[in-house]
């Protein structure tokens, strides 16, 4: 067991351990955020800095009916995220 496991007593501890770290947030509406976690509360309202937002849209080609998956990215210096839009929060991928 890692040191981290010892301090995770409830799910929100995982978020606490990610303070000032870059995190990945999956939101409703096929939106994803990557940014530095400055603050959060029990609703998962969050303040993120140096954010990159990725918006995924699926368009159907009029003629071939093929699904075209498009991703739009934008940079936001500071972002307040309302908690009810949050699906998943993860520390940065360590693959």
């Amino acid at each position: 067991m890692t040191e981290e496991d010892a301090t995770v007593k409830e799910p929100l501890d995982l978020i606490k351990l990610s303070l000032d770290e870059r995190i990945y947030v999956k939101l409703r509406g096929d939106r994803e955020l990557r940014g530095r976690l400055h603050a959060y509360d029990q609703h998962l309202n969050m303040i993120l800095g140096e954010v990159e937002e990725t918006i995924t849209t699926i368009e159907i080609d009029d003629e071939t009916y093929e699904e075209i998956i498009k991703t739009n990215k934008r940079a936001v210096p500071f972002l307040f995220v309302r908690g009810d839009g949050v699906i998943l929060v993860s520390p940065p991928l360590r693959q």
Binding site: P11, Y24, V86, L88, V89, S90, P91, L93, R94, Q95
Partner: peptide, 11 residues
């Protein structure tokens, strides 16, 4: 794949 993941309960 995520090493650790927090899932908000309402989902």
């Amino acid at each position: 794949k995520y090493g650790d993941a927090f899932i908000r309960g309402n989902n």
